[in-house]
Design a protein around this nucleic acid. Structure first.
Length: 430
RNA sequence: GGAGGUGUCGCCUAGUACGGUCUAUGGCGCCGCACUGCUAAUGCGGUUUGGGUUCACGCCCAUCGCGAGUUCAAAUCUCGCCACCUCCGCCA
């Protein structure tokens, strides 16, 4: 008879909006290639739960007033009232059990539904739309080396020893490799702070509720490392900690912008044999991530701002890239829309993802209970958005695009001050 | 890791030995009104949070770190967990 959490269920997804416009969710599910019948199940469950809840509330009110009578009564009268109260209590317990059971069922179903998309192209991984292509693809009058060959020449990357120490997809950044990573992430942090982001160092081990609330236990679940001894998860991005930062809070002063620097861990399950060479796809890397809490009405505009900051950063390291609008079926559970910036990788003759910015609308804030007050002072969920500013993978594109015939690599102007003024990274003798 | 202590509506606080008008006390702060050359002071009233419902006034449910249990009835009793503080141990 204590503690009933199911009351704020409605906040997990916008049940009211679902009742008003179920078609919108159906369209989204269809575009993602997800089950569309879930909408009817949700509506049916919702109705049954509301009825059960009303029944419980009525019975409970009766029980309360009966309790007061008992407390005041004496002798025989009290005995009679007590008998009646016992009956009432039985009914209350049954009504509560029913409404709780329906609530749990509804909750589980709600959490299985990915975010409702906003204007994302329908389809799967290959159905992205190219929005813009920036910069010139470099041409070489020599056979370009791939990033690993360059990394080894420069004494920057050591895959062999990474595998020796930790297994496949682990590596060491050595010498200028580590300096280049620091330079890149420092440049990213510098830009973020200049743009008004609060720089953050964040936990990389988080509780299940944090991981769940950010949406990574949905279709990303197999990607996530879990430490069973402590029931903690290793994050795949600083986004997790930055989203959890304001969990269970009501925010004032939106927008709030944070830039988190963290190591990121990914199991890369299901990608066996893919990108096995070099540091393109690895279990551990470092990243500077932007994270914004904004008014839902401002979410799309913020999404475009995050994209602009990513473009600014890509321009600083002088990489040719394109921007794609990711198709619905390729979105994470929490994203309503996602733009990726993909840099040209000369030896692969293709573009590879360097940044990703997602508009999660109110998906994460509903699960983590992060709200602000609307014009009338009523709490409403905020929108959350994230975007990459730089990662270890950028080293791949920098090495390959700025390489020279002798195996040296030109350092982009903006990075030089973080590399002791160095203009070129030279191969070292072995 | 071990021992002890603490956790009440923004902040502080009463209540918990003995379960029942606790529908949670008081102060600070805040809001409204009154009084007042202005300000201040004073007086009166209001003020946990969330959800549901109502044109509205309101009304209903939940909420005393979290969860489970006992009971007709739990801030109060029982069990588990969490956070913080003190001491001890261990350690990069």
């Amino acid at each position: 008879m204590r503690g009933r959490k199911s009351d704020n269920l409605g906040s997990v997804i916008d049940l009211r909006a679902l009742r008003d416009d179920p078609e919108r969710v159906r369209v989204s599910q269809r575009a993602r290639g997800e089950d569309e019948a879930v909408v009817d199940s949700l509506l049916g469950l919702d109705e049954r739960r509301r009825a059960a809840l009303t029944r419980f509330e009525q019975l409970r009110a009766e029980q309360k007033s009966s309790g007061k009578l008992v407390s005041r009564a004496q002798g025989e009268e009290k005995q009679a009232l007590l008998a009646k109260a016992k009956e009432l209590a039985q009914g209350v317990k049954e009504a509560e059990a029913e409404s709780d059971a329906l609530g749990q069922e509804l909750n589980a179903l709600l959490r299985s539904v990915p975010n409702v998309i906003e204007d994302a192209p329908a389809g799967g991984e290959d159905d992205y739309v190219v929005l813009e292509t920036v910069g010139e693809i470099p041409t070489f009058d020599f056979t370009p080396r791939d990033h690993l060959e360059l990394g080894e020449l420069l004494g920057a990357i050591d895959m062999e020893r990474g595998a020796k120490v930790s297994g496949s997809r682990f590596y060491f950044l050595t010498g200028v490799g580590m300096q280049l990573q620091l330079a890149l992430l420092n440049l990213a942090m510098e830009q973020a702070v200049a743009a008004g982001f609060v720089p953050m160092y964040v936990p990389v081990l988080v509780k299940p509720e944090t991981m769940e609330g950010t949406g990574f236990l949905g279709n990303h679940a197999p990607e996530v490392y879990h430490l069973p001894a402590d029931d903690l998860y290793l994050v795949g991005t600083a986004e997790v900690g930055l989203a959890g930062y304001h969990m269970n809070e009501i925010l004032t002063d939106l927008p709030k912008r944070y830039a988190g620097w963290s190591s990121c861990f990914r199991r890369e399950a299901g990608s066996y044999g893919k990108d096995t060479r070099g540091i393109i796809r690895v279990h551990q890397f470092d990243k500077v991530e932007m994270f914004s809490y904004v008014d839902p009405a401002d979410a799309h505009a913020e999404h475009l701002r995050l994209l602009e900051w990513e473009k600014e950063m890509l321009a600083k390291v002088e990489l040719p890239y394109r921007i794609i609008d990711t198709a619905a079926g390729d979105l994470g559970a929490s994203a309503a829309r996602k733009f990726d910036c993909e840099a040209w990788v000369p030896t692969q003759h293709t573009y590879r993802e360097l940044t990703s910015t997602s508009n999660c609308t109110t998906f994460q804030s509903r699960r983590l209970s992060i709200r602000s007050r609307d014009g009338e002072g009523k709490p409403q969920p905020v929108a959350t958005l994230n975007g990459t500013l730089a990662t270890t993978r950028w080293i791949v594109a920098i090495l390959e695009n700025h390489q020279q015939a002798d195996g040296s690599v030109r350092v982009p102007e903006a990075l030089r001050k973080f590399l002791g003024g160095r203009e070129v990274l030279e191969p070292i003798g072995r």
